[in-house]
Design a binder for these strands. Structure first.
Lengths: 207, 207, 207, 207
DNA sequence: CATGAATGAGTCTTCATTCAT
DNA sequence: CATGAATGAAGACTCATTCAT
């Protein structure tokens, strides 16, 4: 009984369904994490809110950690992509232009899902976090490092690694806290300008 | 309307034996938190590592949260006291002198038990954290606000609240991360000087 | 305002396997209650005697009370059904015929599982009992009230509510105690006739 | 060193204090049982409400059951004494006079502390109850039996034991329930008269 | 592959009882 | 004898994970 030939991809339907299921799981986890907190994120609850059986969940994820890890990677990527996409074409622009854009990008990144970012940063057992979550920061740090090296003549930091660290952490921390604790700061551009000043005066100091 | 579980300790340790027990509990909790993480801090495990029976633990703490809360309060107080004691007598000194001291104090405060500070900040379900933990930050923010107001003529920040926020968060974040991720930064004073520059150039900018 | 704990079962046993499990739980609880007493009816012990894991128990009952409540409801229903089925078709029969039947029905009802009835009545913390258990009594009281109203011309009680109360409680109490403390009374019909006399002479007294 | 002679009892003070302590324990237990229920009657809580240390409690009672048992015995005695004192001098009076007094006595007995009586009857694990609690009933049953034998010629019950049983249980049950569930019934004498009728017509029936 | 019933180790917490002071 | 700190067995309940259908 010869099989009917077909150009259309045979197993795509199956793979398609898989991806949908995986996405449903991640989405359900996101909703639970943001709406109910980490300690309500049991695998049974995730499966329930994803509309699948608990058994199916374990078909796609070997354990609970892997779900959170996947979520972290996904979120990390989104953040890194936002920042990268906003900054990549500014590589040759001067610092006065880049820093404000960096801050805008960071705020935009934190605005994707501030509550999720918070839970991921402040409620997940560290064991699960380290590797996955830092990726965004590393990618952004790489960007900054490259930029600072490119503009080395202008800025000539005393210690490149330290400057990258200070820049990265300051931007991350201030934008994170502002989005969560001072949404009023974000409504106009004053906060952006202040943080820009903070960093620009530092970078442009004459040694 | 979920009934808020009491978080205050059960009996004040009046007698010698009691105080020893309470201290053993807090110490064991600290050790577990720093060495094994929050999710290993079960009450049974705490009692075991404290070398007491589980029943004794519940003589002094009404529930698990109250233990962590006591630890947070204690740690909060230690931090706030370090910073306050180092800054209180500098109220009339100029910013160029105060900012470096602030940073030194912050580093010293984070050096008390960096890992504990991290766990307390990054692994405790937020529900339990907010009130107790933020006290140190509030006390320090109050100090900063008072100082900035005192030196208003020199610094004239555009937005006092925002400046306090930026100062506080930046110092906290940078010292926290540096102690944990870059112990090498701390060994000499370069990091302090860099962060001082970051803040001083910002505060002294001419508008 | 203490949050009332849900007492209704967790999931309706739709599938065969589930119903078997639920029945095993109720049966084991009945056995423990009758053979060992209420204070031995721990959920772990119930699960053990039911031959299931403790987790399975909690798949079907949200808490311990709900198990006892289910048992009470079941037992209540059985009792009420026995009495109702025996009396419903005697609605138009005279009192001399109905009272003996009522007593026979009550004895039969208590004979279902006298020890269970006792434990349910005499060992369960009253908080859990009231609503579920009284249903049988209420249904039977309703029957009696309707009957007495129907035969009002013959009996003309001075106080209907009080008469219903006296009838109901006397029958319940005497049959309950007789079954448990004087099984010998039940073997022949003398006890029935005595109790019938007790009630009949009372109801038929000429005022 | 010859002891000083004294007529006043030497150890009475000590014994006196003991009795006071024991009474405080029983009183505290009574209060807890009636106000909070059996499951709140922990030995620690009893000691606390009695105003003594937990250790002292165990100086007077070997375990928790013994406290409840003592309470039952005490309560039993009070009940039996009320009934006996009210009936003892009526031994030679006719049934028409005695039955109403019996009912009055039973109501009075249940009015001592209805809630305690209820808890003792309906919430205490049966294991602890049987022996102590039935004493009152047995003493009263003895009284009734003696009385019925004394008036055998008038009443000539078909089965003395059964009649005692029916009388005793009916009075106990109706008075118990009335006091708890129908306090309105008790306010006037109608309930008493009804129950009297119930028993009198039965006892006086002509065979 | 999807399902969900079943599992049991592990969690928080209570409480009767003991014993050193 | 009074005290109350200490104890740990035991109880209610959860949840990640497995596996038969």
């Amino acid at each position: 009984m010869p099989r009917k030939r077909s150009i259309s991809p045979r197993k795509l339907p199956k793979q398609e369904r898989s991806r949908i299921t995986v996405e449903a799981i991640l989405e359900a986890t996101t909703r639970i994490l943001t709406e109910e907190g980490y300690d309500k994120a049991s695998t049974n609850h995730i499966a329930e809110r994803a509309g699948i059986g608990i058994g199916s969940l374990y078909q796609y994820f070997p354990n609970k950690e892997s779900i959170v890890a996947a979520l972290m990677e996904q979120h990390s990527n989104e953040i890194a992509e936002i920042v990268e996409s906003k900054l990549s074409h500014l590589f040759d622009r001067p610092i006065e232009m880049v820093i404000p854009e960096l801050i805008k990008a960071a705020i935009a990144a934190h605005a994707i899902n501030p509550r999720l970012h918070q839970v991921l940063n402040e409620e997940i057992p560290q064991s699960e976090r380290l590797q996955q979550m830092q990726q965004a920061e590393k990618r952004i740090a790489g960007l900054l490092r490259a930029y600072l090296e490119r503009w080395n003549d202008d800025i000539h930091p005393r210690n490149l690694e330290m400057t990258v660290f200070i820049l990265g952490r300051t931007v991350e921390s201030l934008c994170h806290s502002a989005v969560l604790e001072h949404p009023d700061f974000i409504t106009n551009s004053q906060f952006e300008r202040e943080v820009s000043d903070l960093l620009l005066f530092y970078l442009k100091r004459t040694n």
